[in-house]
Every structure is written in structure tokens, then in C-alpha cells.
Simulated scan of single mutants.
Amino acid sequence: MTAEMIAPEWMHRQITSEQYDSWSEEQCAGIEVVDGMVVVSPGASKRHNRLARFLANALDAAGGEEWNADTDFDVRLQDVPLDNRRPDVVVYRADTIDESPTRPEHVLLLVEVVSPGSETTDRVVELDQYAKAGIPFVWRVEQAAGRVPVVHTYLLDEAARAYRAGEVFVGRVEAVAPYAVGIELGGL
């Protein structure tokens, strides 16, 4: 069995932003690009998707006219080598809704819901990448069946290009940064 039989040829070499931008939405679904290499993301659980959508809806409603919150689209962290992540929730400037790709300067907050199989990526790797890209706020959500979600908040230290730990919320988020939002997670 050859490598091509297991995965397409393009998954074995670095790709450029121009190549990625030429792909269809279907080709880009379920993948991220890290250092120019395609990384296939496993499908998320229903619990994971529901939690992400719930958070996005609450953040969108609280963001007013200035901020939108959505799920399931790319954030282009850098062009060379290509780093394209697909966070669980993205809060971005409403006036950039038609700009593609979404870039770090459009983004206020990213939310990652930690899943089995992506713990190190969600807890360490992505935090480092998001900080280096200059994303001001990140929330990391720990969730497990039968337990109340825990939201860890992070604020960018721009001088260090690293995050400082912020508040931790269990069950109910009452955040004032990046803007005021109250989210009840106990019933999920």
C-alpha cells in the first residue's frame, strides 16, 4: 500500500496560501494548516459542537453592533509558512464580515473547546500560535460528560507575545473582558 492510497499527495508536502485559497470550501472543511502542512481534525462530538454554538450565540448577542461571533471558519494566522486555524468560536469585528481570509487584526477573542485527542494542541500549541499572532483574548473550555464546563480566560501580554491567565469560570461565565457577557453553562 502506497502513501497515496492512504492520503492524497497534497497532504505530504507544504502548501502555500495561494494553493489553499484555490481549494473549495468542501476541501477545506475539517482541516487546518500548520507550518504549511495539512492537519486533519477529527469530527467533534455533539456535546462539543453544542457548547461551541451556545458560546458563540451568547458572545454574538453581547457583542452588539461592533462584534460578531461565529463558529467553523478559518483564521489565517500567517501566510508564510501558511498557518490556518479553525477555532471553535471566533469573535471578530463586524465590519470585516465580508473580508476573507479572517486575519488576527480582525479578531478580538478565540474560544477553543478542548476535546479528547486535541488536548495538547488546544491547551499549549494553539495558545502559543494565537499569542504570536497577536490575538488579544483566548478562552479555553474544558468539558466532560456529566460535569459542568470550566472556562479559562487568557489576556495577551503584548510585550511578551504570551498570554497571562485570567479568570476561571465554573458553570457560569460573568466576564467583563473583552466585553461584558453572562453565560449560564450549568445546564448544558
Rank of each mutant, 00 (worst) to 15 (best):
residue 3 A to E: 15
residue 7 A to V: 11
residue 9 E to W: 00
residue 10 W to H: 12
residue 11 M to C: 06
residue 13 R to P: 05
residue 14 Q to A: 03
residue 16 T to A: 09
residue 17 S to F: 07
residue 18 E to Y: 09
residue 20 Y to P: 06
residue 21 D to Y: 09
residue 22 S to V: 01
residue 24 S to P: 03
residue 24 S to R: 02
residue 28 C to F: 10
residue 29 A to Q: 13
residue 31 I to M: 12
residue 33 V to E: 10
residue 33 V to A: 11
residue 34 V to H: 07
residue 35 D to G: 11
residue 36 G to N: 09
residue 38 V to W: 15
residue 39 V to A: 05
residue 39 V to D: 05
residue 46 K to W: 03
residue 48 H to K: 04
residue 49 N to L: 14
residue 50 R to G: 07
residue 51 L to E: 10
residue 52 A to W: 10
residue 53 R to A: 14
residue 53 R to H: 07
residue 54 F to Q: 07
residue 55 L to R: 07
residue 61 A to M: 12
residue 62 A to E: 11
residue 64 G to P: 12
residue 64 G to H: 10
residue 64 G to N: 05
residue 66 E to H: 01
residue 72 D to T: 02
residue 74 D to I: 06
residue 74 D to A: 14
residue 76 R to Y: 07
residue 79 D to C: 00
residue 79 D to N: 03
residue 81 P to S: 06
residue 81 P to Q: 06
residue 84 N to M: 04
residue 87 P to N: 02
residue 87 P to S: 00
residue 87 P to C: 00
residue 87 P to H: 01
residue 90 V to M: 02
residue 91 V to G: 13
residue 92 Y to Q: 10
residue 92 Y to V: 07
residue 93 R to T: 09
residue 95 D to V: 10
residue 100 S to F: 14
residue 101 P to H: 01
residue 102 T to Y: 08
residue 103 R to Q: 06
residue 104 P to Q: 00
residue 104 P to S: 00
residue 106 H to L: 03
residue 107 V to W: 14
residue 108 L to P: 04
residue 109 L to Y: 08
residue 109 L to H: 11
residue 110 L to P: 04
residue 113 V to C: 11
residue 113 V to T: 14
residue 113 V to H: 13
residue 115 S to F: 09
residue 117 G to F: 01
residue 120 T to E: 08
residue 124 V to W: 15
residue 127 L to F: 10
residue 128 D to I: 14
residue 128 D to E: 11
residue 129 Q to D: 01
residue 129 Q to V: 01
residue 132 K to G: 03
residue 132 K to T: 04
residue 136 P to D: 04
residue 138 V to Y: 13
residue 141 V to G: 05
residue 143 Q to N: 13
residue 144 A to W: 08
residue 144 A to L: 05
residue 150 V to S: 04
residue 151 V to Y: 05
residue 151 V to T: 06
residue 156 L to W: 10
residue 158 E to V: 02
residue 158 E to W: 00
residue 158 E to A: 00
residue 160 A to C: 06
residue 160 A to Q: 12
residue 163 Y to C: 06
residue 165 A to H: 15
residue 167 E to T: 13
residue 167 E to W: 08
residue 169 F to P: 14
residue 175 A to F: 10
residue 178 P to D: 13
residue 179 Y to F: 12
residue 180 A to H: 09
residue 181 V to C: 09
residue 181 V to N: 06
residue 183 I to M: 12
residue 183 I to A: 09
residue 185 L to Q: 13
residue 185 L to F: 07
residue 186 G to L: 08
